[in-house]
Simulated scan of single mutants.
Amino acid sequence: MACIAALPADNALDQVSALAIVVVGVAGWTLRVWYRSARRVPLGTAASVRRVRQQHRLTSRSWLEIDGKTWLPVFFDPALVTLPSPVTAEVSTTTIGWNGHVFMVSGRALSAEPPGRLIDNPLAPDADAAERGAVAARPLRRLLLDAQSAVVGPFVGLFWVYLVGGGIPAFVGATCVGAAVAIWASAIRGSDPS
């Protein structure tokens, strides 16, 4: 807060207003995702499903391929590691149910394969698959995966200082906010640490 106090009054107001807009946007989008995941939609029709793990640039996501025609991204769940491939599951627009587990959709469906390197789940899971899934779901491992996207933080800081000014305090603040939003965006899209 001392950094903001050192700025001229109108520039400090611009900085705080921009931060408030970012916070409101992130909170609103997070509440939207939580609402969609908390809302239990009745599971729909039975379909053949197989898990595909995507690696594309800094992104790693889980996708469920439905009947070989549609790909749905899902939030990571340790049960995805134990999912045989293919398996019959109950599919709706926002959830996929299998063996008592409900996988929440984390994005829009694709009618073509997702870009990048695709890694199929094995036909039958290994004996230690549940343990590997639990290890992958640890918060520190997830943060390590999502933190890769924080490299955009300094570029956001430079762009902010170029547009608004504010010197080093504004650069540091915008870098921190840019890195935090990049980590959040990676996590909210459904990153896969497995």
Rank of each mutant, 00 (worst) to 15 (best):
W71Q: 08
W71T: 05
W71V: 03
W71G: 04
P73K: 04
P73S: 11
P73V: 08
P73A: 10
P73E: 08
P73G: 11
F75V: 06
F76V: 13
F76W: 06
F76I: 09
F76M: 07
D77R: 07
D77F: 03
D77G: 05
P78E: 02
P78H: 01
P78I: 11
P78R: 00
P78T: 05
A79M: 02
A79S: 08
A79L: 03
A79D: 10
L80Y: 00
L80V: 04
L80F: 00
L80K: 01
L83N: 00
L83Q: 01
P84D: 02
P84F: 01
P84L: 00
P84V: 05
S85V: 01
S85E: 03
P86C: 05
T88E: 11
T88C: 07
A89Y: 03
A89R: 04
A89E: 05
A89K: 04
E90P: 08
E90I: 06
V91K: 02
V91E: 07
S92G: 07
T93F: 11
T93Q: 14
T94I: 08
T94Y: 13
I96Q: 10
I96L: 06
I96G: 03
I96F: 05
I96M: 09
I96D: 03
G97Y: 10
G97T: 03
W98H: 06
H101P: 10
V102Q: 13
F103V: 03
F103D: 00
F103W: 04
M104L: 09
M104I: 10
M104H: 13
M104C: 09
M104S: 12
V105L: 04
V105F: 02
S106H: 04
G107F: 04
G107P: 08
G107S: 06
A109G: 14
A109V: 08
L110F: 14
S111N: 11
A112P: 02
A112D: 12
A112L: 10
A112S: 14
A112I: 13
A112K: 14
E113K: 13
E113S: 10
P114A: 15
P114L: 11
P115H: 15
P115Q: 14
P115G: 15
G116K: 12
G116A: 12
R117C: 01
R117Y: 03
R117F: 03
L118K: 08
L118D: 04
I119M: 12
I119D: 12
I119P: 03
N121V: 01
P122F: 05
L123Q: 11
L123P: 09
L123M: 12
A124E: 06
A124K: 09
A124M: 13
P125F: 00
P125A: 01
P125Y: 00
D126R: 13
D126P: 06
A127E: 12
A127W: 05
D128K: 07
D128C: 00
A129D: 00
A130R: 08
E131K: 15
E131A: 15
E131V: 15
E131S: 15
R132P: 08
G133K: 01
G133H: 01
G133C: 02
A134V: 09
A134M: 13
V135R: 10
A137N: 15
A137G: 15
P139V: 13
P139R: 06
L140A: 15
L140Q: 13
R142S: 10
R142G: 08
L143Q: 02
L144G: 09
L144K: 12
L144S: 09
L145V: 13
D146K: 07
D146C: 15
D146G: 05
A147K: 12
A147T: 15
Q148C: 10
S149P: 02
